[in-house]
Amino acid sequence: MTDLLAKSPCDGLLPLTIGSVTVTEIAFDAITSLAPFKGQESAVSDALKVQMGAAFPKPNRTTGKAHARAVWSGVGQALVLGPPLAPIPGAAMTDQTDAWTCVALEGDGARDVLARLTPLDLRPSVFKQGHAARTEIAHMGGVLMRTGENRYGLMVFRSMAATLVHDLEIAMQSVAARGRL
């Protein structure tokens, strides 16, 4: 018998506040990938609604709310962030709870920080609350969500946690220092 201890991806790296921007790690009870098989899209969406009250998200969108959110994550695929899901017939599901580094970036300058890391159009009129994108975050493929007026959710692979925090830190320092010029 053994007792395994759990460590989060950003263990020892976060939280971090520089200037008006703060990064914190988010832990979800579970992250489950959900990919309906052919012709099963609406049945899977209905089953998801029953389990967590949110439909299967459309491209570039999220459904649900904090701690029970489904985010579109690519062709025919969503990541369900929050409660562990019971098996849904008609869909491929995998446990991704430990696969992702999830952080929240929040504060007045959050959008300016992100503009240094991603080529995505982040204008508030374009990337609205509830929107999500698979995009590049500082050389890494990731998931970006706008979860509030000045709050964003970022996900990159677990192994890249240190790089994400490093790149965010440099961008946050730069934004803060520009404000002091």
Partner: peptide, 19 residues
């Protein structure tokens, strides 16, 4: 997607999920 879209199969990387 491009050669066998007739096949009903889903793939996803789980590299990072498992140590």
């Amino acid at each position: 997607q491009g050669l066998r879209p007739d096949l009903d199969v889903q793939i996803i990387s789980v590299t990072e999920q498992w140590a």
